[in-house]
Amino acid sequence: MNKIGIARPTLMALLSISIFQLSSCKEKGCTNPNAVNYEESAEKDDGSCDIKSYLTLDLKMKVADEDLELGTGSYTNSAANAYKVERVLFYLSEITAHYQGGLSEEIAEYHYFDASAPATMTLTKKHVAQGKIDSLTFVFGMRGDLNKDYALPATTEHINMQWPTPMGGGYHYMKFEGKFLGLDAEMHNYNIHMGRLVNSMGSTDPMFTLTLPLDGKDVGAVNFHMEVAMDLDGWFTGEKPYNMEDYGEGIMMNHEAQALLRKNGMNDVFKLIKTWEERLD
């Protein structure tokens, strides 16, 4: 309502005043904010709280199993490029937990991660089914029907992740940027930008789906955390290492680089670190 603090003797204002007055006696109900039937107005718990499970995905940025030091850490990849990391922004989509017996819960249709913004690195789906969880699956990048121009809400983050129409449209799957020391002994910028490239040279989609096994963990009325690493080193390692000397500055129009990153990334970029349970009652 208008907080400028003025009398508004309209019917609406009067109604809300009267409702407030009618309901101002002590109320019983579920007072646990984690419960499905939590009542904000309840002041006394009546034991009716119905607590289901929560599922939380915590993304941890790593380089060769060590925590990423954004902006400051110095790293060397398998192609012997010495590099620093300044920005990592990416999407996962269809983030889904699969239970024994065929049930599944979608944790998020898509999610935007920014390594410099901790709040974006964790996501929770509340009030999901309880049961034994076999696996976590997700798509690296943006699932097909979401990967088209203007499919996501026009927030600053999504606008800045757009993949321009002349190169196929949709969204960047990842922006992984920083500097590396070139063979010419100069600092070079690198921009590992992945996304679906469509141009006169053809079409390459570096998206992939991953399954992380969870061994039938029985999840009760808890917040079940799945800690998953994105290990940046994994983008470089593979049968053919990704060498910044070859692809350094920008690869958005480079089909070969997109395909190589997909191949390298599928193996060892995403790893389950551990799972743990947080109490909800």
Partner: peptide, 8 residues
Amino acid sequence: DPLMKQAH
């Protein structure tokens, strides 16, 4: 900024 391509 890394986005300044070919800055070197």
